[in-house]
């Protein structure tokens, strides 16, 4: 019995000695697990035309100018599309870090648009683990062209379009992010009975970061068959994001003319096959309207 106690004592003393000698003081505090939210999956809240999984940060105003020139197959006569241009001017505002609202006006079919986007899951590691980010996007648009047949009875509701979109994406690594965007576009008025009011589509978009300030983006939107007129094609866009401090410049090639969902998803008529490609750019400039409080 005595021996056992003696060894226990010796062991304890030795143990406390080695404990006291511990080199790494901070390890005494133990490991605090914190939740590490993934950020900067995309440079801005648009991939090219599609909304990216990013939101505008709370209290930040994002002023956006989008530009799409004519198509490259216009040839030298049209200076490869530079003679024509469609423009959209928009403002996005982050009500919080997860809720963004925005308005815009595009020259394509003289359309006003608005959206609300709610990021309800954030990719994270650590204490709270979440493999992907998910957001819900709701948009509406009003087309304000003069009525094609003013003599017949026209309704304002015929000008309205609505889009519901789920955005699910993941930043797989520092340089690679991918997202899927299942979408439904509702059109109040359609030209023929052969078309559908509700159009279902699946968008996919990815980013490869080439350097700290340069990224390559691509997006493709697949329209499910037999919903739209025969001359409508799927939208495909490829472009670069260039970040310079407060600006993000997005330069791209796309076969879509419109920059809002109802347009580039359900009204794209040009095709990459015959050079129906627009050169275009988005410029995004952010302004911090409400600064976060530091004490």
């Amino acid at each position: 019995m005595r021996n056992v106690s003696f060894f226990t004592l010796l062991f304890t003393l030795f143990f406390s000695f080695s404990y006291g000698q511990n080199d790494d003081l901070l390890s005494l505090l133990g490991d605090d697990e914190t939740t590490d939210y993934t950020n900067a999956s995309f440079k801005t809240n648009r991939v090219i035309n599609l909304h990216s999984l990013e939101s505008t940060a709370g209290g930040v105003l994002d002023f956006k100018i989008g530009h799409r020139f004519g198509t490259l197959n216009g040839g030298f006569y049209e200076l490869f599309g530079l003679d024509n241009a469609n423009i959209r001017i928009g403002f996005d505002y982050g009500l919080s870090d997860v809720i963004t609202i925005g308005v815009g006006r595009g020259s394509f079919e003289k359309t006003y648009d608005g959206f609300i986007k709610y990021k309800f899951l954030r990719q994270s590691t650590g204490k709270r683990k979440m493999p992907f980010t998910a957001a819900l996007l709701l948009t509406s648009a009003v087309q304000t062209l003069k009525w094609a047949n003013p003599e017949r009875e026209n309704y304002f509701s015929s000008r309205m379009y609505y889009t519901s979109q789920l955005i699910i994406g993941r930043k797989f690594s520092e340089s690679f992010s991918l997202q899927l965007s299942p979408t439904m576009v509702h059109r109040n008025l359609i030209k023929t009975n052969a078309e559908k009011n509700d159009v279902y589509a699946l968008g996919a978009a990815g980013r490869i970061k080439l350097s700290k300030r340069l990224a390559l983006n691509a997006e493709y939107i697949y329209l499910l068959p037999d919903q739209v007129a025969d001359n409508i094609t799927n939208s495909l866009s490829i472009g670069f994001d260039i970040e310079t401090g407060g600006h993000v410049f997005q330069l791209h090639f796309t076969n879509s003319t419109s920059m809002i969902e109802k347009g580039f998803i359900t009204e794209t008529t040009n095709s990459w096959d015959n050079g129906g490609i627009h050169f275009g750019f988005n410029v995004s400039r952010v302004f911090t309207v409400k600064r976060k409080k530091l004490e």
Partner: peptide, 24 residues
């Protein structure tokens, strides 16, 4: 004396600065 600070734990007034600080 030992100190440890998580870089992601730094809060900025401007969200974009915070993003660039971490990212770039």
């Amino acid at each position: 004396l030992e100190f440890a600070v998580l870089i992601k734990g730094f809060q900025f007034e401007k969200a974009l600065m915070q993003e660039h600080f971490n990212e770039n």
